[in-house]
């Protein structure tokens, strides 16, 4: 995938905002991820040469934090908590239901037509509401498998209408 000059301009602006400061690498990566929903490889190489740090170092930072992703993500991001409390409250069932419903494979996977990405996270800090999941910025507590299906259906319907 080749990114156009316009896209590099966006990255350049992000770099400029951060004064081309190496020590602001994490903020830069956050801004880039906000823009593209993930960290494209060629953008990371561009950042590396702009900041005079090695691509391997950037790759190290990008893979260290689970917040960053090197794979393109779907439009809606579903984060299922699999921390201790949620795990005991059978969060694994929610993940299974999502997988079946969305035909997702693997742990962190992109769903067909770029609509959903399902991720497991370690703890969302809402153990009292276990099991918890987040769809985009909305938090849902004490979720049941049926509830998951209805939530997904609503979003799918909205997406169909938009099309």
């Amino acid at each position: 995938m080749k990114l156009s000059c316009i896209k590099y301009k966006i990255v350049y602006r992000i770099l400029e905002k951060n004064n081309f400061d190496k020590s602001r690498l994490i903020s830069i990566l956050q801004a880039v991820q906000k823009e593209y929903k993930y960290l494209p490889e060629e953008i990371l190489f561009f950042i590396a040469s702009s900041l005079s740090i090695s691509p391997a170092k950037i790759y190290g930072v990008a893979t260290f934090f689970t917040h960053f992703t090197l794979q393109p993500k779907g439009k809606h991001i579903i984060k299922v908590c699999d921390g201790t409390a949620c795990h005991i409250k059978k969060s694994i069932n929610l993940i299974d239901v999502l997988r079946n419903k969305l035909e997702a494979k693997g742990k962190n996977c992109l769903i067909k037509e770029n609509i959903f990405t399902v991720e497991t996270v370690s703890c969302l800090g809402a153990c009292g509401l276990a099991p918890v999941l987040i769809i985009d910025y909305d938090v849902y507590g004490q979720v049941t498998p049926d509830k998951v299906i209805s939530l997904i259906d609503v979003i799918l319907e909205q997406e169909m209408v938009k099309k």
Binding site: F45, A48, S54, P55, A56, Y59, G60, T63, F64
Partner: peptide, 16 residues
């Protein structure tokens, strides 16, 4: 070369 990933998955590798 640099470190990538974390915890038990840590490894030394080149970029990407």
């Amino acid at each position: 070369l640099d470190f990538a990933n974390r915890g038990s998955q840590s490894m030394v590798c080149s970029s990407f």
